[in-house]
């Protein structure tokens, strides 16, 4: 087990390095330069001589490959660079935000799983029924909703009109409800669809017919033999959706002024704080990869067929 986790962690390294390279190259072609981005805070153009000295001091005149090597060495020690704006280590800025981001992502995913999976299950057991039809219409609608618009409407209804919940900010669970709902709706819709399709797949499998021929009640067939096999298929969607969720969170965090990573990313983009932008993106990617590693490990725990191949 430990070896498996270790192997998966090692397998993440090339991906992270690849992402770091892409992001690094992307921000190296930025019009203007690091130094001017650093110094240009609206007080007019910089003295070219000062700029040249700055560039040399920051090592910006070295070739791209040298700079990338330096950047990677930095990353390996956990150093994400220093924020242009605040002069703080980016790692610390990111650390301050990651808790809020995790809270929101987990709340949204929990909400999506809690409703979406049972809904898909129920719909699959009664294909063509009214519940099934409504659930699938709801699911395709949920996938078509712009999250920030849904958030805006929720904000208007529950915060402005009914005044049940705060309209934005970070605090107790009451602050969490609206952003989590807004962010959770599309994974909910997707999970409902995936679960329904998986259950329909499994329920026609031979071993389910065997289970019925054993004289089991339909409830027992479903809970013992269908559920676990179907959830295995759903698990992949949960893992992949976490990535999309982290991306979409940017908009929802901005809308509700939620102090998460996404908001840090957007603020940093507007302030042209490139190290902070790179750092937030890398951490978001790392988070996504870790979640998918956990999904892989969960697979090994649930599915004996994979355990054999891995050891």
């Amino acid at each position: 087990m430990l070896r498996l986790i270790l192997a998966r962690l090692l397998a993440m390294i090339p991906t992270i390095a690849g992402v770091a390279l892409i992001i690094f190259v992307l921000f190296s072609v930025i019009p203007g330069s690091f130094a001017s981005a650093l110094m240009d805070d609206g007080r007019g153009a910089m003295d070219p001589e000062v700029a040249a000295r700055m560039r040399a001091a920051l090592g910006l005149d070295d070739p791209l490959i040298v700079r990338f090597g330096r950047y990677m060495r930095q990353l390996m020690t956990g150093d994400l660079g220093t924020s242009f704006r605040t002069g703080e280590p980016v790692a610390r800025l990111v650390g301050q935000r990651i808790g809020a981001s995790l809270e929101l992502a987990l709340a949204a995913m929990g909400f999506a799983m809690l409703i979406g999976i049972p809904l898909g299950f129920y719909a699959a057991l009664r294909p063509g029924s009214l519940v099934d039809t409504l659930a699938m219409i709801g699911a395709v609608s949920g996938l078509s909703l712009p999250k920030f618009w849904l958030g805006l409407m929720l904000m208007y209804l529950f915060a402005v009109h009914l005044q049940w919940l705060p309209s934005f900010g970070y605090g107790g669970w009451r602050h969490l409800v609206l952003p989590a709902l807004a962010l959770g709706v599309s994974p909910l819709a997707l999970l409902a669809r995936t679960t329904r399709a998986s259950v329909l797949d499994v329920i026609n499998a031979d071993f389910v017919r065997t289970a019925r021929s054993k004289g089991m009640s339909e409830t027992r067939v479903v809970t013992w033999h269908v559920a676990r096999n179907a959830l295995l298929l759903v698990l992949t969607t949960v893992g992949l959706q976490f990535g999309a969720l982290m991306g979409q969170a940017v908009v929802v965090e901005k809308l509700f002024s939620w102090p998460g990573l996404g908001n840090l990313l957007v603020e940093s983009v507007f302030q042209r704080d490139i190290p902070a932008v790179q750092g937030s993106i890398l951490v978001l990617v790392l988070f996504f990869l870790v979640i998918n590693m956990l999904v892989d490990i969960a697979y090994v725990l649930i599915d004996p067929r994979i355990a054999v191949q891995a050891s």
Partner: peptide, 27 residues
Amino acid sequence: DAAELRRLRGREVAMIFQEPMTALNPL
């Protein structure tokens, strides 16, 4: 009725299928 049918299945009459590869629950 459903309960009696379940008792019949497995206790009075049992079945084996063509595909042993897929007839057992893999998990």
